[in-house]
Nucleic acid binder design. Sequence first.
RNA 1: CGGGGCGUGGCGCAGUUUGGUAGCGCGGGUGCUUUGGGAGCACUAGGUCGCAGGUUCGAAUCCUGUCGCCCCGACCA
Length: 600
Amino acid sequence: MRVSRLMLVTLRDAPADAEVISHQLLLRGGFIKRVTSGIYAYMPLLWKVIKKITFIVQEELNAKGCLETLLPQLHPAEIWKQSGRWDGYTAGEGIMFNLIDRQEREFGLAPTHEEVITKIAGEILQSYKQLPVNLYQIQTKFRDEIRPRFGLMRSREFIMKDAYSFHANEQNLKYTYTEMNDAYERIFKRCGIETVAVDADSGAIGGAESREFMVTANAGEDLILLSPDKKYAANQEKASSHPPSANILKKGKPKLIETKSQMTIKELCLEQNFSPDQVIKVILLLAKLDNSLSQPILISIRGDQDINEVKLTNVISKHINSNVIKLSALSIKDLKEQGINNIPFGYIGPDLEDSYLKQSIEWENKFIRFADHTAANLESFVCGANVVDYHKIYATWSSLGESPEVVDIRKAIPGDSSLHDKNQKLIAKRGIEIGHIFQLGRKYSSSLEASFTNESGKKEPFWMGCYGIGISRLAQAAIEQNHDKNGIIWPLSIAPFEVIVVVANMKDEVQYKLANEVYLDLKDKGVDVLIDDREERAGVKFKDADLIGIPWKVIAGRESSSRKVELVHRTRKDPKLLDSNEAIKELISEISNYKKSLLH
RNA sequence: CGGGGCGUGGCGCAGUUUGGUAGCGCGGGUGCUUUGGGAGCACUAGGUCGCAGGUUCGAAUCCUGUCGCCCCGACCA
């Protein structure tokens, strides 16, 4: 390819609306053009990158026996209603674009494909003899993100590889899950990016076990917690750890203490000389459920700890066997709307009576009560007395007459001890999620009635797994991880071009002739090569080559008359002046050695 | 949706407070000079100042409405 024909327009200044460096570089290098919020055109250079990533993904998945397909993007509402996800995905803050066609039928633009693929698999796969099967596709997905941002990192239209596997039993699902884990490790390695695999919450998709593959970068939207020995790594949403041990409060006879205007734990501890870990913090929340009920929740947790809302949401969903659509703190405004105005905020104890909810118009009139381990483990503690201006000291769970369900809803934080080894203190890093693998179990196959006949002649729903890679996001994450002040440093395996031949001075026919020979020879030998034949000064060409991140430069300059060219690597500081044929030889061996090194 | 901010040639910005008919840098075009890390000089093209109303002799500037975009939070590959 010739740069003069490449439609290359680079920007010296980054457009003002780009925040993170990878987004700025994508714009400056002309890789993307924004069409509207969260929707981008992939320009030719980026499309080449995406195709290279795609090719690696295909090779690795095909090697594991996966089958490539292409599924529709427009889905009838019916199948989403059948899986029970239509309302959650379209109503309120739902992320599925949806529309009505001329016959008044409802459709959704696919954010994910469990429904379609499960339906199809259910019709084709009738017997355990046909299993397992793992189907994948690489195509555009649509999600009406609440807030698109950071270019391709969180866009409303993006390219994703999604795979869905079908199994006759759980063991086989687990086997495929580890196979996919391996494939993912190889894919990311071959793409030249470093990832960390972490335990993850399975979120809206549901299911048992799941792992995320994170590119560590400051621009990452997730916080991940790692043990220094690398034996533990989890998304903070999922992470569990040992909390610091509490200062023991002596046992004593429970009694009331006056705590006027000490409504917060901080104020209380300051005035009464308690330590926050001797106090139980009570939090009231309202869970809106997908069966349209509103359930008040009462949480007890040790005063120095915070709640992990993701864990809590999962706990609530499990407890009442219904999905939580929204979880929010109970506000005084909410309470007033329900005709409740006498809750002693600031002085609430775990034994707050359900009778407060009696007047409620729309809510369930009983709290669901959970206590985090940190609270449940306290043998003697301070808590609100449910009377304004009073707390209780030396309280115990039995003295309160409470035995709430004990759960892990505590937010793990850096500095906590790891569960596998108390001496390992967790550290935090930010990560960009580029892959996620899930053991779905039978959630979708059950609701969509997708079943096969097992060895004993009985029908049973498939065991399923699903596996995603954000292809377009990966391209940007690679930049976030690989750049310098001059621009992008593409890993060679996914660079838009492997080599750029730069003609230092186009007016010098000797230079151009030699450059062109080198270019044609490299092309002939299968190297993905670009020649910069623009009527520009050499400096401009060097800057552009660096900005768009081409790994190798071959420069035909002053020494062209003696058939010498300069071979320059994007980041190494050892330019070499070589005979043009030598340079070609060396380049080809460098490239093939690099590619080989990625496979081990 | 809540909170904050911004819309002025392709990109980055000034001008808005105090109304007087739009400017700078980059980029584009032409010519000359230059030619190994985003060249210099000269000439030149390009903007109904997001859009719609209103106030005024006069609006980029003041008022009202509206649309779009970005940042912080909930969502996620």
